[in-house]
Simulated scan of single mutants.
Amino acid sequence: MTTTTSTRGSARSSMIDLAYVAIFAALVIVFAFVSIPVGAAGVPVVLQNAVIVLAGLVLGGRRGFLAAALFLALGLVGLPVLAGGRSTLSALGGPTVGYLVGYLLSPAVAGALAYRARPRRRGEQIAWFSIAAAVGLLVQYACGILGLMWRSGLSLAEATVSQAPFILPALGKFAVMVIIALAVHAAFPDLLSRPKHPGK
């Protein structure tokens, strides 16, 4: 009876995890179509890269990674999952390929860091979630820089400088994601207190 109950509990937990992953993958895709024009030139600031890290902050490293993997996999079959209506497949051959790698890695890293915070310790949560978001952003930029060097032939300095106009908007976006993630965990504290899956 104990084994049966445990099996049922594990199956239910897996189904819940699958639902979380699917919901966040869909959310990331939806935000591919949200952009905010900034400045006289109207260069858009997209929210998708921040929502990807939000998946890690809310779901943890493993489930955040799976949400990113699912969203990118859907793009491999031609669905327009990326900003600008592009598919993952169309972006693989371009200079932004490094960001795709960053999209995959950043929720895993951010989630693993965020989930080091103990539930119901507000100050600790704020600190860990802020660090996690900053590192997630750094991972995306680092991968993007490497991709630009590879595909566009830019030097390290040139590729790094090209990120400068986007840093301040990105910091603002990621700060909002931290606030949202903290609010979600305040409403659902059990998300941070599931010890069976390390790194979640």
Rank of each mutant, 00 (worst) to 15 (best):
A50W: 02
P44Q: 05
C143D: 00
F71M: 15
I179D: 00
V176F: 02
A114R: 08
V34C: 11
P80R: 03
L113S: 08
L104D: 01
S35N: 13
S35V: 05
Y99Q: 01
A186K: 10
L192S: 07
A157D: 14
A26L: 14
L70C: 09
G199P: 05
L74S: 02
I131Q: 05
W128K: 03
P189L: 08
G39C: 07
S193Q: 11
P95R: 09
M177V: 04
L105R: 07
A181S: 13
H185S: 07
Y141K: 08
V51M: 06
A41D: 14
Y20N: 13
P95G: 05
S152W: 04
P195I: 04
R122V: 14
C143K: 01
L76N: 07
L105P: 03
S106E: 05
F129Q: 02
F71A: 11
A142H: 09
V81S: 01
S14F: 10
L82Q: 03
L72K: 01
P169T: 03
V101H: 04
I131L: 15
Y141P: 02
E124T: 12
G60K: 09
G84H: 06
V30F: 15
P37W: 10
V81Q: 04
G39Y: 11
K200P: 00
G84Y: 05
L89N: 06
A133Y: 03
Y103T: 02
S14D: 06
A187V: 08
V28W: 02
K196C: 07
H197C: 08
M1K: 11
M15G: 12
A50C: 07
A170M: 00
G172V: 14
L59C: 09
A25M: 01
A19T: 11
L79N: 00
V139L: 05
R151M: 10
L192Q: 13
V101W: 04
A67F: 05
T88Q: 07
H197R: 11
Q48S: 02
S14M: 12
S152I: 06
V34L: 14
